[in-house]
């Protein structure tokens, strides 16, 4: 996993609520057996017409918007547990998703992929979406070590929460497998005292 420390970037706005992982990456693109290349089909059916021509009104096709941060409506990533959704966002180039609420499995998948799910209040989210709509170049600064999101143009800084262990993993590029594999002696001891192996 890639390390994440600080990011300065404008953002792409997607002001819709309950964006599910079927929209982020439709099931018909889940047939690959590797992790790469999902970015091409990110938001496929919102981004392209059936004849593969881009839909100009969709944010990702709008030349006004760019950047490594996606700002999306409440309850982002609900539905299917497919980690491919996080891979697709990452593969496309996003490193941070800002929303006022994340679905649990998506949040975990994002963190395991090196994509930071950054939760803000409903109010801050609303202000961000409006401000980016006004000024697509609005710069956001995400700093993981200090757990802050800054909007320099506003002179404001917001702090965000993250599990301390997950924060360390992301900053250092570690993941849970390394940690868990090192727990084997404790796991084997646990197995011996389990009562319910029928």
């Amino acid at each position: 996993m890639e390390r994440f420390q600080t990011l300065h970037s404008p953002a792409v706005p997607l002001p819709l609520e309950n964006i599910d992982t079927d929209q982020i990456i439709p099931a018909r693109f889940l047939k690959a057996t590797t992790r790469e290349g999902f970015g091409d089909n990110l938001f496929r059916d919102w981004r392209y017409n059936p004849d593969n021509s881009p839909k100009p009104e969709f944010a990702l096709n709008n030349p006004r918007y760019s950047g490594q941060v996606l700002v999306a409506g409440k309850n982002f990533g609900c539905g299917s547990s497919r980690e491919h959704a996080a891979w697709a966002l990452y593969d496309y180039g996003f490193r941070v998703v800002i929303s006022s609420y994340f679905a649990d499995i998506f949040r975990g998948n994002a963190l395991n992929t090196g994509l930071l799910p950054l939760q803000v209040s409903d109010e801050t989210l609303g202000r961000l979406l409006a401000a980016i709509h006004e000024n697509p170049a609005l710069e956001l600064v995400v700093d993981l070590p200090s757990q802050t999101l800054a909007v320099p143009a506003w002179g404001e800084t917001f702090s965000f929460a993250i599990d301390p262990y997950k924060k360390e993993c992301l900053i250092n590029g570690y993941d849970d497998i390394d940690f868990l594999v090192n727990q084997k002696p404790a796991i084997e001891a646990f197995e011996k005292q389990r009562a319910w192996v029928w």
Binding site: S81, A86, G108, N109, Y165, D175, I177, L180, V181, I187
Partner: peptide, 16 residues
């Protein structure tokens, strides 16, 4: 669970 966690369970039979 997601695929990274599938790998974790395969490797350790545990999740964090």
């Amino acid at each position: 669970i997601g695929t990274s966690q599938v790998a974790q369970v395969m490797a350790s039979q545990c999740l964090l």
